[in-house]
Design a protein around this nucleic acid. Structure first.
Lengths: 326, 326
DNA sequence: CATCTATCCGAAATGGATTTCAGACTGGCC
DNA sequence: GGCCAGTCTGAAATCCATTTCGGATAGATG
């Protein structure tokens, strides 16, 4: 049915080997032959069978991408970045969504690993040691997670948190709540660590943990109000939006009575009223960088095991933060 | 490096053929042998090389999924459904995002088609005739689009629109604007068609077309206000949210001065204030149904070319619609 | 003119699983 | 005992592209 290399060979009057060479190692074949082969390949509509190629080269031309939850707009953005960069490099992308199930991650990785050259693991929830055994078998790049000897792309969390807290303290806030996300999320641990490092400037009330979703924020809102703070930082924008929503329902003015600050800068943050002040984390850019590191890992495995890219974050001041109430 | 069928064969003391049979056509081998083979396969951690299998069977065990824009929360939901169902059936999913570029679609499909058994095309923007030539080469199922002789999954648009309009007329609205989405979107054409069929009950003002995004809604908002209507239906929730946002900025009360209604029921719709009345379209469910049809198409190509599944829509009444102003 | 060196190309081996075909063995039946 | 059918298994062919190895040709050199 499909056009094979033999068809091209026959029509072009050469052997299969020559066809391969003409297409993948052009300098090895006579210019004239090369052109003839290429033209017939085009006219016949020949595309090498990837399974056959993969069989012999051991490469698939695919990469895998694992995310915890596509329902969180943060991840589709990362996915877009991964896609874009992967397609540029002529790789196709396998996507899998774990539904925030840490125990499903390893299985999915192992399953994907047979059909891809490498995997971008975005915000994996599994424990360090499990992760470490995984990367022993498969080329893996981490996005939004960092462990020793594995290439990773992460935001500059300490700086991100510094920007957030500086903004709040500049507005007069001293007693600030943090609504924590999943304990298993590295990003949560890092945010917390960065935040605790700043307690010389502020008094920190930790609330949670909650799921990194709108409902998580709604669930934590009343505890935040009971904690008698003037500002609250949500684990991410969805949590912050949940807070906003519940505050509004209880008649608490934002930012009049309390300031709310999120993380991520999902598109949604600018769409609501009041719009959400948030720390924009690299998303598409992180996805692209993840693929970059992965491709590098695939081509020079030794040199890049420790490659690490930290991308800057940017505070986006919007309507949900303001001066402390008088 | 990896465990091959030969390793299993050697250890189990049988031939490679027997290993295959024990694993894929169990009834053909002696129960005792079968068990021995299976156990050694497990202990050795054998997994058949998919490239090799694909080479001979012509099947990849993969399906492709094409969506216009992951940035629109509608699509990640569909993706989740596709993923879930595909994984149940032991298929992996290639995802590609076209960035709302109709001209990129065909190329991506063709590229994907080599490495998948079939493709779920979600809300494709390309013209009918182009689509028709594509489906000649590749098993394709359409989600959110319908053309003759191609299996498709669509919402019950006429009923969806009927629910929307009934709701608005019950509230007293008679002069209603529709902010149209992309002309190339089949869903837009269907919404418009269903809407025009209802003009005996209402006076319809058509505005647009706009991109199916928040910005599109913002851009159309002032035209809506100038049109002197008491209610507006957005092409989708993002457009409706854009309208809401701009109305608020201009001091127009929703639903006091104007009612706003969207389509899709993305998670966001319930998170904003006022929350958005919208017609919930099947999303995950549509994704699952799309995979179902595709698997059916792959197993019995003839019987199912015209398979068509229409899924019900449900009006979600929330805060953005109310009685006409007095 | 003989020898050597590039340059270019083809034949054959390769990768791993599946499928076809044929052989070995068992049991049943005449 | 001989033949047949049925059951189970192995050898070999197959899928397609790539890679290795060696052969052929042309040109260069002494």
């Amino acid at each position: 049915m499909a056009v094979t290399i033999k068809d091209v060979a026959r029509v072009a009057g050469v052997s299969a080997s020559t066809v391969t060479r003409a297409l993948t190692m052009p300098e090895l074949v006579h210019p004239e032959t090369r052109e003839r082969v290429r033209r017939t390949a085009v006219t016949l509509g020949y595309h090498p069978n990837r399974a056959a190629r993969g069989l012999i080269t051991g490469r698939t031309g695919n990469i895998g991408l694992l995310v915890p939850d596509l329902g969180n707009p943060f991840f589709p953005s990362v996915v877009k970045g991964v896609q874009a960069r992967a397609h540029e490099a002529d790789y196709a992308v396998f996507l899998a969504d774990t539904d925030e199930d840490a125990t499903a991650e390893a299985g999915l990785v192992r399953r994907l690993s047979k059909q891809v050259d490498g995997i971008v693991l975005c915000s994996p929830r599994m424990p360090d040691e499990e992760l470490r055994t995984l990367v022993a078998d498969t080329p893996v790049v981490l996005v939004n997670r960092r462990i020793a000897k594995v290439p990773s792309v992460t935001p500059e969390f300490p700086d991100a948190m510094r920007q957030a807290v500086s903004h709040l303290t500049a507005l007069g806030h001293r007693r600030i709540a943090y609504v924590a996300g999943p304990r298993s999320a590295w990003a949560n641990r890092e945010r917390l660590r960065s935040l605790r490092a700043l307690t010389k400037d502020i008094e920190l009330i930790e609330i949670g943990n909650v799921m990194p979703m709108f409902e998580g924020g709604v669930a934590a809102a009343d505890q935040v109000l009971a904690a008698d703070v003037t500002a609250v930082i949500g684990y991410n924008d969805l949590v912050a939006l949940g807070l906003l929503n519940r505050f509004m329902a209880r008649g608490v003015a934002v930012p009049g009575d309390i300031s709310v600050l999120g993380f991520d800068d999902i598109a949604l943050a600018a769409m609501v009223h009041p719009s959400l002040t948030t720390v924009a984390l690299p998303k598409e850019q992180a996805g692209r960088a993840g693929v970059d590191l992965l491709l590098q890992l695939l081509t020079e495995p030794d040199r890049s095991t420790a490659a690490r890219r930290e991308l800057p974050a940017q505070l986006m001041v919007r309507g949900s933060t303001g001066p402390t109430p008088a």
